[in-house]
Design a protein around this nucleic acid. Sequence first.
RNA 1: GGGCCAUUAGCUCAGGUGGUUAGAGCGCACGCCUGAUAAGCGUGAGGUCCGAGGUUCAAGUCCUCGAUGGCCCA
Length: 1130
Amino acid sequence: MRFALLPPDRAADEVERELLAQWDEEKLFETSLAARAGAPRWVFFEGPPTANGKPGIHHVFARTIKDLFCRHRAMKGFRVDRKAGWDTHGLPVEIEVEKSLGISGKQDIERVGVGEFNRLCRESVFRYREDWEKLSGRIGFWLDYERAYVTYSNSYVESVWWALSMLHAKEFLYQGYKILPYCPRCGTALSSHEVAQGYEDVEDPSVYLQLPLKEAGKTGERRILVWTTTPWTLVSNAALAVSPKLTYAELRKKSGAEWTVILAEARVPAVMGADWADRWDVVDRMPGTALAGARYQRPLDWVTFESGAREIVVTADFVSAEDGTGVVHLAPAFGADDYAAGQQYDLAFVQPVNARGEFPADLPLVGGMFVKAADPVIIEELKRRGMLWKDGRFTHSYPHCWRCKTPLLYYARSSWFVRTTAFKDQMLARNATVNWNPSEVGAGRFGSWLENNIDWAISRDRYWGTPLPVWVCDADSAHRDVIGSFAHLAVKTGHALGADFDPHKPHIDTYTWACTACDGTMRRVSEVIDTWFDSGSMPFAQWHFPFEHREEFARQYPADFIAEGVDQTRGWFYSLLAIATGLGDALHPEGVRRKVSADRHAATYDDYHAGSHHSGEPRTGEPRTGESRTGEPRTGESRTGESRTGEPRSGEHESGGHRAPAAAEPYRAVVVNDLVLDANGQKMSKTRGNTVDPWRVIERHGADAVRLFLVASSQVWVPRRFDEQVIRETAGRFLVTLKNIYSGIFAQYANFGWSPSAADPAVADRPLLDRWVLSRLAAAEATVDAELQRFDATAASRALMDFVTEDVANWYVRLSRGRFYDVDAADNRAAFATLHEVLTVVSRLLAPFAPFVSDWIHRSLTGTSVHLADFTRGATERDVPLEAAMAEVRVLANLGRAAREEAGIKVRQPLARLVCVAVDAQQTLLDELVPLLASELNVKVVEFLGSADSLVSLEAKANFRALGKKWGKETPQAAQAVNTLSSTTLRAFERGEPVHLTVGGHSHALDADDLVVVRKASGALVVSQDGMRFAAIDPTLTDALKREGLARELVSRVQRFRKESGLQVSDRIALWVVGPAVLHAAVEAHRAWICDETLTLTLQVRETAGPDIPSGTTADLDGVPVSLALEKVS
RNA sequence: GGGCCAUUAGCUCAGGUGGUUAGAGCGCACGCCUGAUAAGCGUGAGGUCCGAGGUUCAAGUCCUCGAUGGCCCA
């Protein structure tokens, strides 16, 4: 058996590409799935990326996290199917197509034609999908791209329709109004991103009104002051709002007017002037709540109210004392706060403005005018009516249309909603059982946001999206059909849909039918739905549930794991939860199965499902009895999930056909990742030009290093800086070390004739160092596994990297190097077998993080792919006392080196003895490890002392934790007393003699807990200490030691010379050494050893050079001049 | 304006339940090794723990206020 070599300087990119080709050829992903076909499932949901742009480095990040945990659980023995998915609808796609066509805005799209436009949208999605698949593949993200779900596909759309129809059946779907920023010129509502682009500072009117309060028979004696910057909305004024938290003042002019004015006390100076007290008397003060319910006279009476409360003062939390008068005018059609208050108090709703932003022609004075242009007219009219207090101008930041710069109007638009507020408590309960990583996102950001949940506006007045399956009668809009399947649509229209049926606009809008309740015609509403509803439907829509694959859905719901960026908090994380909770039992596999079996002969799902729609009566798809259960959080095992996710579940879940009641949360664990920033901590953006091209980075460092860096550099849920320099220094460096150990130490020498065999000693028979590293390996294995189990990839990767660099490279390999130069000795076979085991297990542990190099090494070591291996071995035993003893030895070695450094004696110079004091380790083990310590520190003898008394004097250090309990406020004095205890007293105390402390009249016996005894060096040896551990070297250099040191210097120099002369490591030589007598003595004393080390067959030492010696080199060996010459002999 | 997160050595980050010498890696300085060699190892110097108050015998850690940066939402 030969082990392939992997030179560390071989380009990672090249190696990885070769592996990708090999995986492809072997169908390794499919093979790995097949190997777990019968295993318990661990379900992953792929949050579908929007395929409307090239993937960036932050996508590599998110996808690494997804892949990593899926790989880990798969290696742990679960079946982890990974179905890819693509989010294909929505405004981003439309904008991309608008750009490519060089058009902008709805009118342009209509001109191009909705059919053509949507065709281009569909094509555009395909283009980017390829980019995504390529990059995902390159970074080793294993996903089933062949069977990806695509949100625009007919089957997906049909499942979404089903969900909407079920929500409708549960009376969760309704039509209402939503206040949207709207451009009257473009005739379109703007998304929040568009609004954010268009803020500009503008000057607007600043108008104060005095509105008379209507009180029993004396209207106008008290007036309330109101401020607005949009006079045109006063036409629709329905109510006034005051703050329940503010105090309001009622003022009367000192000059003795008959009327008073009311405004927030805190606003008086700002509104009335700093010197207001000179002119006004405060006649009354009252809380805002006292004003609630008061009636007032509205400023303008041009429109008539149809229904709802009007001309009334209400309280609202959004009213502040920041500006204005603390009294806010409410026009529910023209502001989000206003609308919300309107809903809360059932206020009258009037919207006398058309789509072009104009008042109707029949209004007095302002009829037909653009609203903004009507402002001066309205101010003039208010003045005429005596309702104007004062007017002025006001500069503020106001949103404008980013296309045409027209100021936006906040506008009530008809919109469709899902009544999420109806099941908010259930969402909260479900959320509470989710294992969020980090937990604060679930409890804080997401949880507190859910608390303030408002109904989900799901309709969009756009083109490329899942059409809202609502048909409304053109004669009476109360007559509605919500279509839940294509079959249902066929039934409605009376004929089959045809093979080329496309549920998208504009085709779908050609389907109409006669209203069953009147003479009207049922026509589809124009809207499409929010793409978040699409993606939030993926748990069932990816399976075309409930029309197909019901069993599959049951097995793959809910998800054990999802992972996305923190920006998905209000996106996918929410839409998954909201839809699953709203659907409730409709997602219950048992419920569906019962239904199906009861109607086994039904030709289509819709056949049995129909009827609920024909009647027009809402009905629940499933029995209501289970409802109360749905909101209950799971108890017991839910939070840590250990019992569920720790080990593969037994088959019982499978045999049941489903895994859990669908009433559970749609995902059990979430890993949230934060942004990838540039090297300077700046957010990456195209406009800043600091984006990172993932392809170029991968080419330079390899996907392994990039993945490892992204995960290991800091917790994934804090923003991380992306710095290529740092990749090289951390992940890159680690991988180089690993390859060095594999190729430079293991494979290179194993190829002289070692391969695993029965000749290898059993573990128990191997040297302590081997047993130690195997024990550490078991520890690392357990740690990495446990950290991944709890979704901490950062801690896992760091533990693994630390093990490899510290324990394997820096200790085991370094101390064992000599054992790898010869494959025959039993001791050496043990070393090879041990390192083989270590490297094999390390590659498995590394596989989720760095799937390429780990596979490469694992294949070379074992002949099989790491991705078909088990993550952990069975029971492995640790030798904890041995680990403790070795830890002790390593500390002592460091101390010894520090002592050498202090004494100024290099390691190559042998010393007579090292004197140590160790703690926490068995002396027998330490004795066995002495040869390692002696060789590491190059000393002849290592002695252990039971105490350091002979090396040190004792001092006490107070232990505040213990003293604090006893002494309270006198702790510092007591500590001081402890710290001044004499060395003699402390020795007595350590022997068990009682010691009392007296401080401030109190006296307590000293307990062992109360102090730590510290040893300070004293004496002739050079002592180094760390806590209770000591290492002391004897710096005395005898002539014999000096000779040995010189011999070592010589060997070192000869070795270098051999190399400089171009010799092979196995070449035998003849050697001439010319130097003074002292060198002569050293060589003669260690002749055999020198010859052995340098493979010298004949060694001649002289004091002077001669003509018979070949030319060579000269050197200085610690002040001893030497000339060397050598010749290759064989 | 609200919510959440972060702020610890030049850089990147660790620092359960408060306990007195605040750690690691990288970088840097000095040195070692020269059969992992465009590798490997050691020793060392680096810190008012963002600031101000407070609680406590004791605060990087708990509380309050503030600053800066980031994200999300208005």
